[in-house]
Structures are given as C-alpha cells and as structure tokens.
Design a protein around this nucleic acid. Sequence first.
DNA 1: ACAGCATGTGTACGTTGGTACACATGACTC
DNA 2: GAGTCATGTGTACCAACGTACACATGCTGT
Lengths: 195, 195
Amino acid sequence: MSGLTATPQPSAARGPRRPRRHDPGRRDRLIDAALTVIAERGAAATTHREIARVADVPLGSMTYHFASLEEVLIEAFTRHADSVARLFDERLSAPRDREAAVEAVIALVSDDLLGSQHDLVLAVELYVAAARNPALRAVVQAWMARSRQALERHFDATTARELDALIEGLVLHSALSTDPMTPEQIRHAIERYLR
Amino acid sequence: MSGLTATPQPSAARGPRRPRRHDPGRRDRLIDAALTVIAERGAAATTHREIARVADVPLGSMTYHFASLEEVLIEAFTRHADSVARLFDERLSAPRDREAAVEAVIALVSDDLLGSQHDLVLAVELYVAAARNPALRAVVQAWMARSRQALERHFDATTARELDALIEGLVLHSALSTDPMTPEQIRHAIERYLR
DNA sequence: ACAGCATGTGTACGTTGGTACACATGACTC
DNA sequence: GAGTCATGTGTACCAACGTACACATGCTGT
C-alpha cells in the first residue's frame, strides 16, 4: 500500500474482479441511476458512490463521465422534467373539444401524476434543489412553461396558469397525506374549478 | 494536543476566548438558528456546526441540548408549522360572513404566505424531509389538518380541502416562478374557485 | 458557605464524501 | 497488424461531519 504500483490483487480477493468493458450508453444509464437514487434518498443525499453502486460501475466512472455531482443532478432533473412534460403533451394533444380536455386533465392527474410515488418525490426534490440552484430553477421554469403551453391548447392563458397551480396543489397534498384524494375527489375539484 | 489536559490557550490565540455562561433559553435560540440554517442551506445541508455558528455557541452545546441532529430538525419544523398554522387561525377567526372570509383567504395568501421567501422555502424543505421521515410526516399531517380546520370555520369540508390544495399550488408556483403571481392574479384565482 | 448537579465547553475519533490522478485496455483508423 | 486515444478502473487525499466525552463552572437549595 505504498501508494505506487498498487498490487491489484490476484483476481480473487475482494469482489469478483470486474472484467467490464465497452459499455456504450453508460452515461445514459448513470443518469437513470441518479434519478433512482434521488427518488430513494433525496437529491442532497445523492452521492457519486451510491449512483455508481446502483448502476454497477466503479466510482472512477462517475468522474470520467461528469465534471461534478452538480452536473449529474442537472442532467437527471432535466431528463425527468422532460418526461413529465411529454406526458402533459400527449394527454392534451388528443382531445378535440373542451369537455374531452377536462377529462384528459382529470386522467392526467389521477392516473399519471398520482400513480407514481417515484415521479412525485422527484418533483418535490427538484423544487427544493431549484430553490438554491439557478440552473435547476431554469429547468423548473421550462417545465412549467411547457405544462402551461399544453393546457393552453384548450384553455385561455389565465385559466391554464391557475389550473396548473391547482393541479400542483392537488398532487402535492395527496402525495403528503396519509389520506390521499380519491379519483372522484380529484374529479370534483377540477370540475368545480373549470365549471 | 495529547488528548489530555488540553492546554486551553492563554486567552488570546484563536478567536477572542469565549467567556460565555448562564444562557437560559439557549435551547430555544438554537431551534430558531436551525430554522435560519434550514432556510438558507436546506435541511439536508444543515449541520450541528453551522447551527452553532449562527447561534454563536460552541459545537458541544448542540450535543448537550439535543440527542441528535434529527431531533433538532423535528423541533425546528414543528415550531415552523405551528407558527404558520397560527397565521391561518388568526386570519380566519376575524371574518363574520363568507364574503369577509374570502377576503381573509386572499390576504392570507398575498400578504402572509407570499410575503416571506423564508417561510416558503421552509415549507418545501419540510415536505421533502417528510417524504423520508415519519416523525416529520406527522408534523405535516397535523399542520394540514389545522389549516383545513381553520378554513372549515367558513367553508364546508370538501371546499376547505380543495381550497387548501389550491392555496398550496398558488404559493408554490409563485415561489418558484421568475414571474410570480400578482395579488390581483391571486385574487382572481381564489374568487373564481369560490364563486 | 458550601456541596451537588445542571449547564456549558473544547477536542478527539471514526466515517463518508468529492475529486484527482496514474494506470489499463481494447475499438478504430490507416 | 500496429499505434492511438477515448474509455474504463482502482485508489489516495483532504475536508467535513456526527457524535462522544472529559473537564469546567457557577446557580441552586439548604
């Protein structure tokens, strides 16, 4: 252990020697692993080592692919925001009239947003992280703008903004409550607002 | 520095020797300092040392007054939730009719909740922390229940719950937006919902 | 006045984390 | 088929942290 020449153990000391090589797309997998870790432990408790463990790559791989931990977080949250925004786009591109649009919003909240504790935690994690990181604040801005834009396919700008806020509140309260709102309650709230 | 007998420097080495003594209420001050640190750096980045620095007490004082860092966080968030809940109670105890109650809600959001970036960040920090800590989840539950109860002085239970969610969404979106909602916009959203 | 004990203080210890970096290797080019 | 270099890997270093703990001190009741 003199620091030089390292004696890399004769292939069967600790752990089953890692023969891994040629792993294209590893960077992508690392970003996905980062999202898993963020959802499980929180963004602030997310470490190079834990991401590497989840993705089953050596620690050194993290510093090779990312200049800093912050870069990992930004890429991960950007990917997450993109995928949720895509949900909004898809749900709201189908409806042809306002009534169908209302149903689409209800389905979006009940099925997509409330369906996944994972996504929900990621959203709140992003909000907190954004409170202190301008780059992440930009990610949140872009996400919100895209959501509103999707809603504006069917509602005027003011309604879209207010509805977006209502959705946020409903989802957040349901997520944190031991007694989350049922789909019927979600429907009631949204219909009452849009009536 | 042999570990024993400590040689406490002759009163003018590093820092102006600390003659402090007899500080009743220090525990309270530490909890307030903790809230300051949480708002500034985030709950996950809150450390014994930073709280002690802010409160201007030695590190050892933290471990004397609190069994663990988690205990500090729980006490701090509990205090915060209490003080916000008190705001709800006060704002909603005055109105004598529904119209006045609507005005009270608008004032509560515009003046109290949106007025302080500090409180707002604390709320989101609490939500994230609660996602992984059952004791904090209980704090959130109690807080939400109390808010709803205050609203139920003037609105039926369903309306109270939905209104509470709407308030949450409005506040959160405003907090994170580079283009926060104006008091007029807040009024519009709440009146539209309660109309 | 004095003993006892709650309160206050300084420092050490073991752990974990971000990052740096020297070295290894195999895919690709020509 | 050889050489180059992007990619991959192991480990070291230093800083920061939670916590433990030995020691100091003066308020308290008697």
